[in-house]
């Protein structure tokens, strides 16, 4: 092997190694994008997005589809989803066990919320398989829809249960 070939290979390899590092950093840049603005009216915004096929846009259009499909179906819900508050996105599978909510560490969902009590509420299935939400004497109350709970109430899939800044709902 000639000296020149070896030198070219040596420098070429270093260049390729650094290229990998630089490409990796470019991939990370996607984390630093600021905020996104989503139109809630999908129909009005549809044509404007169509030409742009990059990955982030593809993700944006998914949630509306989920909204129309996931909520209307009837039947037993299979999971509990946190839709607002610091825990947004957390899901808990509903498997017949009681779910407790509150700031206490042993709760199923530990709320980091100044407006929540230590043992705030619980959600449990009754004999017919319906899911019931019950306020456990919390200070600031639990709201099902817009009404404050005074006793155990069955939850329909999709109706929001609000505790402080956190909103949860049952999904199929």
């Amino acid at each position: 092997m000639s000296e020149l070939t070896l030198t070219v290979m040596r420098l070429g390899f270093l260049a390729v190694l650094w290229l990998f590092v630089i490409v990796a950093v470019q991939v990370i840049r996607s984390d630093l994008f600021g905020t996104r603005v989503t139109q809630r009216r999908v129909a009005a915004a549809g044509p404007r997005r169509a030409p742009d096929q990059r990955a982030p846009q593809g993700r944006r259009q998914q949630p509306p589809a989920d909204r129309s499909g996931g909520r209307r179906r009837r039947g037993a819900p299979t999971k509990l989803v946190v839709t607002e508050g610091s825990l947004t996105g957390t899901t808990v599978a509903l498997q017949g066990q009681t779910i407790t909510l509150g700031r206490a560490h042993d709760s199923t969902i530990v709320l980091d919320d100044d407006y929540a009590s230590g043992r705030h509420a619980r959600i449990y299935p009754d004999r017919d398989g319906r899911w019931i939400v019950e306020d456990l004497g919390s200070t600031n109350g639990t709201f099902l829809g817009r009404s404050r709970l005074t006793g155990p109430m069955p939850i329909e899939p999709g109706s929001p249960v609000r505790i402080g800044k956190t909103v949860i709902e049952l999904r199929k």
Binding site: R59, P63, V81, E84, G89, R146, P160, V167
Partner: peptide, 10 residues
């Protein structure tokens, strides 16, 4: 994982 769509909020 993307957060689920919030309820049509109160």
């Amino acid at each position: 994982r993307p957060a689920p769509e919030p309820a049509a909020g109160i």
